[in-house]
């Protein structure tokens, strides 16, 4: 049962920097990842996401700044390894060992042996839907199956801080849902999950999202907060009887202070909030309608434009 012993932020970074040769990858990065939450780190390739994660687990040293994990300076992170699980983009498993043996190996590294190991391995193989393949060599697995085994190996010791670098690449939607159910269960038990992904629908599932660009954190907040930061609002699409009715409706709505335009034969009305939809429908009677919620993807496009 996971339950974090530390009340402060799971990860705290203040003005951390890292340079590889001439390339400054992290530039005075400030991030605070609260405990018992799912935090998604988004950003284009080369924005420094993976470097940040590798710094958290001590695989790279920093040039400057303060990075703490569960309140401990990262220099002492080795003492916290039993509480951290890191799944890299291409987690290194032993291709010449079977799935069962790979899991036994990782369990042994974390001091889980005997009956406890067997129980945990069964549970994880179930979760990642690989139980019938436990005797296959890891090197013979497909990309998606390999990814699932990687996740199982990462979770073997029930870490309190889970660092997942693009964990659902190659995983089918049904299983992805299973993974997210499991992640949510872990956070409800007190685990902190830091995840990097390019999939916006995955980011939407996280409680907090950070947008990294060029080694800095450009924006951070809940998915809704980020959409609002980008100035995005929901809009309503209305289909009227004909084009002239559409133009009349748009003009009427504009007279009442709405931002409305005719686009591809339909009227699009921007709403400050969803509750304004009722007022719009009091003014016009469409044949059909559809509400469009802004997406995180639009938010980041907009935030990206603002940066440029």
């Amino acid at each position: 049962m996971i339950s974090s012993k530390y009340a402060g932020p799971a990860v705290f970074a203040r003005k951390i920097s890292k340079r590889f040769g001439k390339l400054q990858v992290l530039k005075n990065l400030d991030i605070k990842i609260p405990n018992a939450t799912t935090y998604c780190l988004l950003g284009p390739n080369g924005s420094g996401k993976t470097t940040f994660i590798r710094a958290i687990v001590g695989l790279i040293g920093l040039d400057g700044g303060d990075l703490r994990v569960f309140g401990e300076p990262v220099k002492g992170v080795a003492g916290l390894y039993s509480r951290i699980g890191y799944m890299t983009q291409h987690k290194a498993l032993y291709p010449d060992l079977t799935l069962q043996e790979n899991l036994e190996f990782f369990a042994g590294l974390y001091g889980i042996r005997g009956l406890a190991a067997r129980k945990r391995i069964d549970e994880l193989l179930d979760m990642v839907d690989l139980k019938p393949h436990r005797g296959r060599l890891a090197g013979d697995l497909s990309g998606g199956m390999y990814q699932r085994l990687s996740l199982a190996c990462t979770l073997i010791h029930e870490p309190e801080l889970l660092l997942l670098d693009e964990p659902t690449v190659g995983v089918d939607p049904r299983l992805r849902q299973t993974f997210w159910d499991y992640f949510n269960r872990l956070t409800s038990q007190g685990a902190t999950i830091l995840i990097t992904t390019h999939l916006m629908d995955e980011a939407e599932r996280c409680r907090l999202v950070g947008y990294m660009r060029d080694g800095r954190l450009e924006a951070q907040g809940s998915p809704d907060e980020l959409k609002s930061l980008a100035g995005l609002k929901p809009d309503l699409q209305l289909w009227m009887q004909d084009e002239s009715a559409s133009y009349s409706a748009a003009s009427l709505l504009a007279d009442h202070g709405f931002s409305a335009r005719v686009e591809e034969g339909a009227v699009r009305v921007e709403l400050a909030s969803e509750s304004q939809a009722a007022e719009v429908l009091r003014l016009v009677k469409p044949l059909d309608l559809r509400m469009h919620e802004p997406t995180l993807s639009q938010a980041f496009l907009k935030l990206g434009e603002a940066d440029r």
Binding site: L93, P95, L109
Partner: peptide
């Protein structure tokens, strides 16, 4: 090979060993 190609040595460095 484990360290530079498979990178599986990182997994050992990150274990409480």
């Amino acid at each position: 090979v484990d360290r530079l190609y498979f990178r599986s040595f990182d997994e050992l460095l990150m274990a409480p060993t």
